[in-house]
Simulated assay, not measured.
Amino acid sequence: MDSDQLEQRARVAATVVREAGALALDYFRRRGDLRIDSKGLQDMVSQADRECEDLIFARLSEAFPADSFLGEEGGLRGTGSAMWVVDPIDGTANFVRGIPHWCVSIGLIEDGRALCGVLYDPVADELFAGVAGGGATLNGAPIGVTGETDLRKARVGIGFSYRTPVAPHPGDIHALLDAGCEYLRLGSGALGLAYTAAGRLDGYFERHINLWDVAGGLIIVAEAGGRLSDFMTPDVVAEGNEILVATPGIYDQLRGLFDA
């Protein structure tokens, strides 16, 4: 994909993510009327998730009919090498409980590489964006990771999914606290990556996360100067993977803690 094609996709994605965010925010404000279904242990989906994904698919498939599309709710559609990967509401558990920490995530992947990503938090009206070779921004202003090198001054986001065994999770928290590092568990992996890119966190770790949760944030972290684990393995679409992103000065220290 050449630079003009990529820039065009990035512009359209930014417009679409705002439109989907406005729809999701409307549902958030009247969430008492939402139909909510269970997909598994502590895993929910709402009418808002489905309708936001349908909107995003309609807009992107109209603009780029040759591209494929992977949505959390609707699965894979199309066979194009450039693939849009969408989480219509990352942080649904927060969303349905009225906790204002969730976002709409859109990422573009081609040949195993994240090329562009947009994450929109409509409650805060914050649009995080990144394009390969073009930097990372928050509402149009450049952002970057913290540059922290001392774990005793760091704060790391951490996630958990019941798709993985419970036992390692408290061990990970114990390891962070033993190292003098603070942690947060906020319930949105996408925003965990965005906050790392913007310097609000020094890193984010989750032992298993799906591609749609992080596809929008991968390039944002990379373009903000962060270091990322090898997430884009050949089976990541079907299987997900572990994710670690951090400001470079503490990445190896965190890797050592979580691998111990």
Results as ranks from 00 to 15, higher is better:
Gly98Arg: 03
Ile99Leu: 04
Ile99Trp: 10
His101Asn: 09
Trp102Pro: 01
Ser105Asn: 04
Gly107Ser: 00
Leu108Gly: 00
Leu108Asn: 03
Ile109Cys: 05
Asp111Cys: 13
Asp111Pro: 08
Ala114Lys: 07
Ala114Thr: 00
Ala114Gln: 04
Leu115Val: 05
Tyr120Met: 09
Asp121Tyr: 02
Asp121Asn: 07
Pro122Phe: 00
Val123Asn: 02
Ala124Arg: 08
Asp125Gly: 05
Ala129Gln: 15
Gly130Trp: 11
Gly134Asn: 15
Gly135His: 12
Gly135Ala: 15
Gly135Arg: 08
Thr137Arg: 14
Leu138Phe: 12
Ala141Pro: 11
Pro142Tyr: 05
Ile143Thr: 00
Val145His: 11
Val145Lys: 04
Asp150His: 07
Leu151Gln: 01
Lys153Trp: 09
Arg155Ile: 13
Val156Arg: 09
Val156Ser: 06
Val156Tyr: 01
Ile158His: 02
Ile158Leu: 07
Ile158Pro: 09
Phe160Ser: 02
Phe160Tyr: 11
Arg163Ile: 12
Arg163Val: 10
Val166Cys: 15
Pro168Thr: 10
Ile173Lys: 07
Ala175Asp: 01
Gly180Gln: 10
Gly187Arg: 03
Ser188Ile: 12
Gly189His: 11
Gly189Tyr: 04
Leu191Asn: 07
Leu191Asp: 05
Leu191Glu: 04
Gly192Leu: 09
Gly192Tyr: 01
Gly192Met: 00
Leu193Pro: 03
Leu193Tyr: 07
Tyr195Asn: 04
Ala197Cys: 10
Gly199His: 02
Asp202Asn: 04
Gly203Pro: 09
Tyr204Asp: 06
Arg207Met: 14
Ile209His: 12
Leu211Tyr: 02
Trp212Asp: 13
Trp212Leu: 08
Asp213His: 09
Ala215Asp: 02
Ala215Glu: 05
Ala215Thr: 05
Gly216Tyr: 01
Gly216Pro: 00
Gly216Glu: 06
Gly217Ser: 11
Leu218Cys: 05
Ile219Cys: 07
Ile220Ser: 03
Ile220Glu: 01
Glu223Phe: 10
Phe231Arg: 01
Phe231Leu: 02
